[in-house]
Design a binder for these strands. Structure first.
Lengths: 193, 193, 193, 193
DNA sequence: AATGAATGAGACTTCATTCAT
DNA sequence: AATGAATGAAGTCTCATTCAT
């Protein structure tokens, strides 16, 4: 017995879009490309999505969902705030550097690049950043440390890694996360002149 | 005696390209747009540049030159390594956030986005990063601190600021630079539990 | 005993098509639009009509029927040929300007615009014009008046009203009909120089 | 010596557009069709016109100009108001039925059909109607004749002729004009019952 | 009777680039 | 150095229609 319509090819389209947006960017990917990768004709895409913009929003939405889930799962079993922060960095980096085309799109595609979708993309992104604000708020830090600056610095550093990271390089996401969080800890060893 | 071609409009074209690449990105800017902004017709651009890629390379090259100059000038009068690092951050942020369309292009346009120019762009970018490697090498840091990670973290955080910085916001480039470098200093005050 | 298919949604489709053809024209209306307005999906239309052309023919057919009925009903109680003509004009104008989406389509859509249906549309239209030929034939007119010219002139003037008539304007269909027929009567008052 | 750029093919494009708009309507004519008829590729049209709408406006504008010129030239040598009206009808009919693709477009294409150009088209059309208002104003007519109704009736009848006129038919534009104006004259012979 | 997905053609328009003038 | 016209490919999207379910 066949499953009725459970074999929709919409997820296939979404996967293809995520893969291409992630590798070539939004403007560098044509609707033709996506359709081709999903094994359909360009016009057929529009059975599933009204617009190329909407397709991006759908990818982005799922990207944010997945990266949120990954970070929350990584953090949940841990109690120490610095351990939690480091675990979040590991999860974030693994998602945006290796595992997950959807998550990679979230970091790769600038909302401003897609005027028709910018508002929706930013709303998603904000949702994710709230999660980091909470992680940073829990850190024991010297008085007057600017926690917002710390969050922006760390997330910026992590996201920018997409621009230079090579899978074959020395440092894995795990190592990188440890290095970055270590650099932010207040208690570091005294330098030797 | 006048220079030959002193009235060339090539610089005009370059300025227009820098402004547009910086505001709309490479793919978001058409040759028509650039020509229009420079007061010419599209075909006329090709008197000065062979391809759109070459135009980008020229902008990028000058962008790297200008940001190098700005950073070196900011650093030169100072002796203390941390002061020098902070001054470099100020100069970098001012260039890529406010002053300089050319420098902003260097951060905004991903080399991989322009296959025909990627190699040349990366070569320029590497030239600039060497400058930062020297600044970081001079810092007094605890043994076993990974200086490459520090450099990547700091530069990533600075560059990513282009994605969230608003000129009307609370923190100026100067404040931001101080905050970021402070967060990386080993000797910070003990947190209060 | 109920009619079979008493709950058919075909009339709904026809109404939707009439409304849209009348407001946006034949080429300006898509099968999707009609289906949407009838609360179905595009494919479902084809349960009731073989092609878009056929749908137009059905609308057109009913439009001619309704306008014929309206004109005949208006004329029937009257005996005087000029009164009958004026009553016919009122009925015609009310149908094509206000009341009746079906009738409006008859005037709005040019047969030549729809090659696959042109022959059938013209046949319907001719049926209606015969009615007017009879009305004009009954008029007491000077010898050698060209009655065909009179019919073409009057019907043309009436139909063209669709292009300029606004419901909120000064002249109602009733007033307009009186004015147009008055202008055609031979016995008019002598002008004052 | 060759003429510099005097051999632009823009007029060719305009002619092709006028011919096709006139025969197939605005929506029934594709940019491809026009380009093909002008011996170019579709994209090349955009050297001369920004949009399909603009192309229509250009055709329409020239159509109104030509029909104005034709009517004014026909009327100018005559003094008697009824003779002038009849001559205007002849000129109008000849333009919209036979001679002039541009003028035919003015009658054939409904402004409302082309939202992006509607305002401009109506403005042109109004310009032409003012000319007829003047012709009608000069007629010696019975008191209380509604001159606006007369103008609308006559012009409507003339324009609608496009829907039924066949060149091979009995009545030429000249004959038709005589018949229509005669039907509107107040002094007609008494009918014989 | 209706659905939802898909088709294949074709819509308007923009693009980087070329070239005779 | 600059123009203006043209190219040819490609862009996103809409269309009427089909068909298995």
């Amino acid at each position: 017995m066949r499953q009725a319509h459970a074999d929709s090819r919409a997820p296939l389209v979404l996967d293809a879009a995520a893969r291409l947006f992630c590798h070539r960017g939004y403007e560098g990917t044509s609707v033709r490309d996506i359709a081709g990768a999903a094994g359909m004709l360009p016009g057929s895409l529009y059975c599933h999505f009204d617009t190329k913009d909407d397709l991006l929003v759908a990818v982005y939405l799922r990207g944010v969902e997945q990266i949120c889930t990954a970070v929350e799962a990584a953090v949940q079993p841990l109690a120490d705030p610095w351990h939690r922060l480091e675990a979040a960095c590991v999860a974030h980096l693994e998602a945006i550097l290796r595992d997950d085309d959807y998550a990679r799109v979230v970091v790769r595609v600038r909302p401003a690049e897609v005027p028709g979708a910018a508002r929706r993309l930013v709303a998603q992104r904000d949702r994710y950043e709230a999660l980091w604000a909470a992680l940073v708020a829990a850190l024991p830090l010297p008085r007057r440390t600017d926690r917002r600056a710390l969050r922006l610095m760390l997330l910026g550093a992590l996201n920018w890694a997409q621009n230079w990271y090579r899978a074959d390089g020395a440092s894995s996401p795990r190592v990188l996360a440890r290095q970055f969080t270590a650099l932010l800890k207040p208690h570091r060893e005294t330098p030797t002149p």
